[in-house]
């Protein structure tokens, strides 16, 4: 059987650390908000996009990096 756990994959950890850094707003000039996009400060939109990227990353991890075959164990 092919056994795969996200926690053992370097690529998962690299992606997680990078995206975790991006969903923290440390890289914007303090207190800045201009330009506004549809009434939303630019930095908030970037944080939302980074959050969406994290959701997509989670989807990728679940679909491709997680296969423990736990149910097959039960059937054997």
């Amino acid at each position: 059987k092919r056994i795969s756990e996200p926690v053992r994959k370097p690529l998962v950890w690299i992606g997680f650390v990078v995206l975790f850094a991006l969903i923290n707003p440390w890289y914007f000039p303090a207190g800045s908000w201009s330009p506004l996009v549809f009434g939303v400060p630019y930095w908030a939109l970037i944080i939302l996009l980074a959050s969406l990227a994290l959701s997509i990353f989670i989807t990728w991890v679940v679909m491709t990096q997680w296969e423990t075959g736990a149910d097959e164990d039960e059937e054997l």
Binding site: V12, I47, S51, I58
Partner: peptide, 12 residues
């Protein structure tokens, strides 16, 4: 918003 997404990331 991101803290609720983090919950799922920690689950993984």
């Amino acid at each position: 918003v991101p803290f609720f997404i983090m919950i799922i990331m920690v689950y993984l």
